[in-house]
Design a binder for these strands. Structure first.
Lengths: 210, 210, 210, 210
DNA sequence: AATGAATGAGGGTTCATTCAT
DNA sequence: AATGAATGAACCCTCATTCAT
């Protein structure tokens, strides 16, 4: 049959379409809130295909999670601050992290959902830990440079710095609804974006520089 | 029969037991992940009573959410830092907030869940915004004192400070599973509790003092 | 206690209010479609009172049915055609019946509902058969007069005449929704009322007179 | 296996069996009185299949209603009176309508039920109005013929004639229980069938001929 | 005479998944 | 490799009614 190559191309296309649609759905509704039928309806194929390609809702979700982390890691690799002085580099990392989070709300929500699930599924993704984490490596390099030239404190752990920056950036996206409602302040407002980006930069620099 | 008063007391007891059990269930499984039957089974009454007292799963969840926020607000009111110098007071606020979050993981999870729900339910709780927010009031007082005596920067907004502290504290609890797994670091480990409490204090002081 | 008479008045008032509200509800929603809660909500008392006064939904419905028939019989008794010639009297009976049906749609609907129920409940109302049926008595008198003076056919049964007239009048009210929709003709339109009243009069006169 | 074709055939068979059983059930118990479980139990399949094929109880009922009307319209098409003189033709139409109603009590009851529902569902069946109504067409033809040869009155509307005949025939079936009980007369008794058929013929002829 | 509290039994519906080719 | 048909098990919720003074 001459359809074979076409089939093959469809095969990959179908799979990746399912993955894309499932990512949107899980990010929007959570794990339990997402219905397999709902995903199928947003697709050009049928529900049956989800089982054909992924086996179960759980496995589809795990594929979505892995895919999302992989995409994020790849995006992080494009970050470069090597040509900046350590203090400015650390500020830049905070700012890049901020923008990065704001630009990947689906990913943030998936991480939130996974934590609601007590991290039940991420544990099955050994590959994730093995993927080196560019963001952390970058930070370690800068902190080391700062230590050597005396511009940054030497008594902080890179993971703690990452934690501080991530917490702030994550919260803005993940908790925007409750925080926005309770304090009548839209954390995602475009006209406050610069302000919030500067803020984490200022804090980190104030904390780390000496 | 002497059971009459018991029965009458049961009314309030049944309602509050349902609320308590439901809080645990929703915090553990999320909104969609929680089954009404499941709540009933953990109770001494029947599923029917949930509908008798609360009307629907949704209304029960909203009652849980309101109750959780109310409890937190009350707990916040017991915080006092009035006798400390501004710099130390601001450090203390950060530390109290940290402990506060660690001690109320159910509440943190409910907030996470509510955000996954796009804050759909919290909007129905007008009362929440009207409840004054003690944590914020305390912070405003301290920042004002610091402004007056020159010990703290005068160009920061109290909500931004609250945001920074909250982000850090929230993340530790809310994202412990993914962060813990990926960085092989248990953020909730008891022997690192002091370290993480000091950390947010240091950061805030470094940021705000002058 | 001086409240006794007040109580007694309330008692009757409560019972008759329940009956009135239940009549409306059953007529609107049918037997199964009517919820005991729904009736209670439209009342100034509680659902519990329905059981107190009537014992069950079924018994309430039966009370409604009996009450409705009793009201109709009473209304029929006010009809008089004794001073008209037989032919005109029979026409008048048809016309009065027509108006009578149009003015008692709740009753019509209750009868329809009872037939949907295969007449399950009306059979328990022995009293109904014993109540003499004024409409039929009136008709018998007129037919007898017509027989005697030769103005009306003598070979028809009064129940058959009653059946013919009732069928027409009943249908107009009972089937107005399907007929109105299918033939795009509103049988209850006020501006066609005279036409439809005349029609049954014409038919009956054409049939019976000689 | 030889069951393959059987399975495929089952699809249509299952659907039509559900429709048939549902028709009986709705006609017997009314819309609210019919339980989905009940329908399923009278079937060789499960309750789940009702939702698979029809989506909801409401949609099943609508399918039943449409199907019933469609069957009636088809049955009406087999009526022929073209070779009779107008007067006899109009009598024949009345008689055919009478038998037609007596032979389709399920349909009559469904129409009654639909009217108790205020015609809520029939309005969704646009198709019904578009289906030409053979009974009415037939009547129009005959009235026109009678007008031309002077044997029938020319001042009556075909829909009014249809209304008169339908009312009588419908009532006999629809109200048999209350009428039968109150007047101790079984309208459906086989030995009175001819009498009641003749009766509507006589009335219509007396009314329309001249 | 009157009533607030409680409830067992079922109601319609949806879910993720498997059957059978 | 791909798919249309079918489904058991739950799920949230409502019903008429009774309990216990």
């Amino acid at each position: 049959m001459t359809e074979a190559p076409v089939r093959r191309r469809d095969r990959e296309r179908t799979r990746s379409e399912l993955l894309r649609v499932a990512t949107e759905a899980f990010a929007e509704f959570g794990y339990d809130g997402t219905k397999v039928d709902e995903i199928a309806e947003r697709t050009h194929t049928t529900k049956r295909m989800i089982y054909y390609y992924f086996g179960s809702k759980e496995k589809l979700y795990i594929a979505v999670l892995e895919n999302a982390y992989r995409g994020i890691r790849e995006a992080e690799q494009s970050q470069h601050v090597g040509d900046l002085e350590p203090v400015e580099a650390v500020r830049r990392i905070a700012e890049l992290t901020y923008d990065h989070h704001r630009n990947h709300t689906d990913f943030i929500r998936l991480v939130s959902i996974e934590n609601i699930n007590h991290g039940r599924f991420i544990r099955r993704l050994d590959s994730l830990r093995e993927l080196n984490q560019p963001a952390l490596g970058l930070l370690e390099d800068v902190l080391e440079r700062g230590r050597l030239d005396g511009s940054l404190r030497s008594d902080v752990d890179s993971i703690d710095v990452h934690l501080m920056i991530s917490s702030y950036c994550f919260f803005q996206v993940a908790n925007q609804h409750t925080f926005g409602y309770l304090f009548e302040r839209d954390l995602m407002a475009e006209d406050r974006r610069d302000h919030y980006r500067d803020l984490i930069g200022d804090v980190v620099v104030a904390w780390l520089s000496r």
